[in-house]
């Protein structure tokens, strides 16, 4: 009794094999990240300093800093957020809290999923047609941000809806049974408990938005501008496009500069992502049920 049979031993071997296999796959995921980061730091770390971040490019962009591009990315992301967050959160609240389960809701859900699957270059062309030409915003921050906003809407809707759905249904029922309206329930109970998930979605959107190149190329981002943008109707430089330009379009570019730009961009995105993780951990730690 209690001795391992042949079958037990065989199962044990298979068990070990699979555990090791899956573990290996997981470790391999980290490798590209490590290689990318090390390469960027080694090759580009030397040019990244205070001046690089806060000065304008000079000598046909081969020297000087990247400040207009950095600022432009911040502009684009902020304006895109101002548009997509209210729209996306409102839509998600409607879909999660109000919408009846019928064909219309299913069509909307399908549309959102499809919107998420549209390639970014198609969004770019849509942006040109709709915002640059039809609405007459011209190539501007506004047009580019609107394009980015539309592109990231599904992201924010799905993240918001999921965090709303994660609030236990019993809480809503408890409110309704005391005579609370839908909106009272949403405002006092559902939203406060879903806010961490919504913020996570917002920050993920920020990191996605700040890295996108195609949607802004034709709608508002410029290769090089001598002046900083004065309003949302001006064009702007942007980090992602700047990276593309300095890597491929400028002759005699010192090798370190593109790597430096890439390093700044990836740090920005990583910073946003870790912020989102930290926030989620913090807010999750506060709620108990």
């Amino acid at each position: 009794m209690f001795d391992a049979t042949e079958l037990n031993q065989k199962n044990e071997r298979v068990e070990k094999l699979f555990r090791a296999g899956f573990g290996l796959m997981t470790v391999m995921l980290i490798i590209p990240v490590l290689i990318i980061l090390t390469t960027l730091v080694v090759k580009g770390g030397s040019v990244v300093n205070f001046d690089f971040l806060f000065q304008s490019p000079t000598n046909g962009m081969t020297a000087g800093g990247i400040f207009p591009a950095l600022l432009g990315t911040v502009w684009l992301v902020l304006v895109a957020l101002l548009i997509s967050v209210p729209l996306g959160v409102a839509a998600a609240v409607y879909l999660s809290e109000y919408a009846p389960e019928n064909w219309f809701t299913r069509v909307i859900n399908l549309a959102i999923i499809n919107l998420a699957g549209v390639p970014s270059i198609v969004h770019a062309l849509f942006g040109v047609g709709a915002f640059v030409l039809f609405f007459g915003f011209g190539t501007s921050i506004l047009a580019a941000s609107l394009t980015l906003a539309i592109m990231t809407l599904p992201l924010i809707i799905v993240a918001t809806r999921e965090s709303l759905q994660a609030v236990p249904y019993a809480f809503r029922e408890a409110c309704w049974n005391m005579g609370a309206t839908r909106w009272q329930t949403i405002r006092r109970v559902v939203l406060p408990n879903a806010i961490s998930g919504i913020l996570t979605g917002v920050i993920l959107e920020v990191s996605r938005t700040s890295g996108e190149t195609a949607p802004i190329m034709f709608t508002g981002a410029a290769f090089f501008l001598p002046l900083l943008p004065q309003s949302v109707f001006d064009q702007t430089m942007a980090l992602s496009l700047h990276l593309f330009v300095v890597s491929t379009q400028v002759p005699d570019m010192p090798e370190a500069v593109p790597y430096g730009v890439a390093l700044v961009l990836i740090c920005l995105v990583l910073l946003m992502n870790s912020l989102s993780i930290a926030l989620r951990v913090y807010l999750r730690g506060r709620k108990k049920w």
Partner: peptide
């Protein structure tokens, strides 16, 4: 719903403070 209050099998307090739970119905 206001005049006829209901208590359930499983206690279902809201995930807010004790004080706010008591005041919830009162406020809405």
């Amino acid at each position: 719903r206001k005049q006829v209050g209901m208590v359930f099998q499983r206690p279902n307090p809201l995930p807010i403070s004790i004080r706010d739970n008591v005041l919830f119905g009162y406020q809405i």
